[in-house]
Design a protein around this nucleic acid. Structure first.
Lengths: 106, 106
DNA sequence: TTGACATATTCCTGTATAGGAATATGATTC
DNA sequence: GAATCATATTCCTATACAGGAATATGTCAA
């Protein structure tokens, strides 16, 4: 079996560096596709396809405005990722504590 | 071009659900490979290969103990992921604030 | 309606897998 | 050293996919 489908898994969606770039670019405020194309220097179809994936997993929302389509990040979509990473924090603390203790013992 | 290599990118490494399972299992304390195999019900070669990837991107460390090899999560390896996700938090707050304001206005 | 603009969707291809099976490496005990 | 236990590494195959090119869809203006 190959890798899991990007469309079904948020983690796979953000595995692609360009999609992370797009998310970062959209984070401050919503933008039309054309702006993303110019800002990141990617081909328009490529951007559209990445946006499609991000949309399928709920990482971005869109809204039509005349000829343009404005995209924006979706807080709820990103939250699970943050939650997952945060879940390890208490273990990090424990690890850091251990390191500290070892240092003090010597 | 296909997706980026799992070995070069932390995000790709955690894109695989089984690797996330392994990380979660290792988070509380270090474990030999055999324990992971039993706990997650995966084939031994499969686990070894996943551990290889996790190791290459610095998400886990290992230590030999006789015949066994004990693996443990590496806090420093996971921190960048958490940092990335956290970077969006201030925008989430802004979004949540907007939602709240709209609600109060109505 | 015709054209121009903005974005989305095929179609095609090379590539990096993930899993299974078989095998190799390494360490321990007798 | 031989047998055994624990883990790693090939080799093979099917598959999802990212990018490029071409095309389709949808919207506005004249």
């Amino acid at each position: 079996m190959p890798r899991a489908a990007t469309t079904s898994d948020t983690f796979n969606a953000i595995a692609e560096p360009r999609r992370r770039d797009i998310l970062a670019y959209l984070a401050p405020c919503e933008r039309p596709v054309g702006d993303i194309v110019l800002a990141l220097g990617l081909a328009q179809p490529s951007v559209s396809k990445h946006l499609r994936v991000l949309r399928d997993v709920g990482l971005v929302d869109l809204r039509r405005d005349g000829r343009q389509i404005l995209y924006r990040t979706n807080a709820d979509g990103i939250r699970p990722l943050h939650a997952w990473a945060s879940g390890f924090q208490r273990y990090w603390r424990r690890q850091l504590l251990r390191v500290k203790e070892r240092a003090e013992r010597n």
